[in-house]
Each structure stands twice: as C-alpha cells, then as structure tokens.
Design a protein around this nucleic acid. Structure first.
Length: 116
DNA sequence: AGTTTGACTTGTT
DNA sequence: TAACAAGCCAAAC
C-alpha cells in the first residue's frame, strides 16, 4: 500500500492545468476522506525530490489560497494566473474551475458536475 | 513512542 | 453575513 503522501502527490499531479481541486477533495481521492488537513501537511513538506507537483492547483473549500499562511499566497496566485486560472477577489471560482476525475476537459462548459 | 502543530472542513452562535 | 469552536488525519518535534 502506497503511503498517503505518495497518493496525495499522485492525485495533485493528475490535476490538469487551468483547473483546481480542494484539500478535502484531494484527501477523498487519496482514499482518506476528512484528511484535508493532512493533505496540507504533505504539500507543506514538498521537496525538490518530489518532482514537479502542481501544488498551486490545490485550494481550500472556499476557493481561497490557504498558502497565505506560510507566505506563499502571492506565489500561488501568480502561478495560477500564469496557468490560465484567474482569481476573482482573491479566490478561484470553484463552480467553474474545480476539477474532478473524468471531467478532464470541460473547462468552460459551465454546468458543474460533481459526483455526489 | 507520545505529544504538538497545522497549506482544512463543517456546523453553530 | 461574519466570527468561533470542535473534529479529523498525518507529519514534524
């Protein structure tokens, strides 16, 4: 069984550019529902050895950037904007930017289709 | 090996 | 609508 850390990194790496996911969502996809906080711990401990992990695509349930707490908020915001994910009032509109497996391409679809 | 901390979430006041 | 508190899981000390 792969470590939770590895699972989280894998999930985050699967998020396509221009889309975002929430911590709780990553935890869920990693097989540990409710471990949203732990996901943050993993991303916080990211190292160069972990390779290219698009951690900037991970936002909180409100679409806001929790990275401001560690002083990386501005960096994440810049990275997102550079990837085509504009921030509205300091946060990302999840209803049209949140990504889910199988939803690989509907970026501007605008109908929202989260699995219940 | 146990305790503490925290890039979260959700519900109540 | 905004602020406060409790719950939960993993990693770091």
């Amino acid at each position: 069984m792969e470590s939770f850390r590895a699972s989280v990194l894998r999930v985050v790496r699967s998020v396509p550019q221009g889309r975002v996911v929430t911590y709780g969502q990553v935890a869920l996809l990693a097989g540990r529902p409710g471990a949203a906080r732990a996901v943050g711990a993993v991303l916080r401990g990211l190292r160069a050895a972990d390779g290219d992990v698009p951690w900037q695509r991970v936002v909180n349930a409100s679409g806001g950037l929790s990275t401001y707490k560690v002083g990386h908020g501005e960096l994440q915001a810049a990275l997102l904007r550079a990837e085509g994910t504009p921030l509205t009032d300091g946060r990302v509109p999840l209803y049209e930017r949140q990504w889910w497996p199988d939803d690989e391409l509907s970026a501007g679809g605008g109908h929202g289709g989260q699995p219940t």
